[in-house]
Design a binder for these strands. Structure first.
Lengths: 121, 121
DNA sequence: GTTAGTAGTAAACAAAAGGTTAGTACTAAC
DNA sequence: GTTAGTACTAACCTTTTGTTTACTACTAAC
């Protein structure tokens, strides 16, 4: 994307729709945090609830279902184990979010610094 | 970021906090859409309300205030004009979101294709 | 003088998201 | 036998978010 580039209305609409689709999948208070927790090896329900600070079981359960629908994780039941163990494993596809995480994390960190500086001044 | 890289807990926390700070500023249903509308040259209140499909005046008003606090726009009153014209101009800083838009738009577009394919199969 | 446009705000309400509590059913440790 | 852990779900409540309607106050066009 070059400085000062202008877009056709169609391009612009695609752009905006893309952003909205992305936010639909990973936006909101919890989804990115959950995916990050999954990728970091926390794969069980109670473990996730402990890792993702402040989330309730109800909300976690809903979010996991949505993430599964969107192909970011797979619910794996180990029926042989006792008690039955359920694992939520991130898919290969979840790794495609790496750049999204990176860019958001980077911008967020810079933004915080900027806001703190402005408040001091 | 290399494949399979592991993070220290501190790095991971910074990363997550960054993502959350970013989502705090541009997350939610409307903020990115508004910023995109601003950058595309729609700078007046009623114009924005027409451009950002479905937003109500109250919500637009609130969102604009938050975006101003976060340094993404400036509220400029042209008192000499009659009737008084108010412009919401995106700041230089708003351009720093370009990469965020680009990555989200890209991922969202790819994701939609993937979901559509999976549903067909 | 009526309509439409400028930029909003206030009040009342509805919908969505999230939290709290309790409960299922089973196991393993103390 | 009590406590804690496994993985949730249902019911109920609160908070947040968003919508609708009405209103201000002024101007310009028809």
């Amino acid at each position: 994307m070059k400085e000062g580039t202008l877009y056709s209305e169609a391009q612009c609409t695609r752009h905006i729709n893309g952003v909205e689709d992305a936010l639909y999948v990973v936006g909101g208070k919890w989804k990115l945090r959950i995916v990050i927790a999954l990728v970091n090896g926390h794969t069980r329900f109670n473990e996730l609830q402990r890792t993702v600070n402040g989330i309730s079981a109800r909300v976690l359960s809903n979010e996991l279902k949505q993430l599964e629908v969107n192909g970011l994780l797979q619910r794996v039941v180990q029926a042989d184990q006792t008690p039955v163990v359920v694992e939520y494993v991130p898919t290969e596809y979840a790794k495609s979010l790496k750049d999204v995480f990176a860019v958001l994390a980077d911008w967020g960190q810079k933004h915080k610094k900027k806001i703190l500086l402005n408040d001091k001044a």
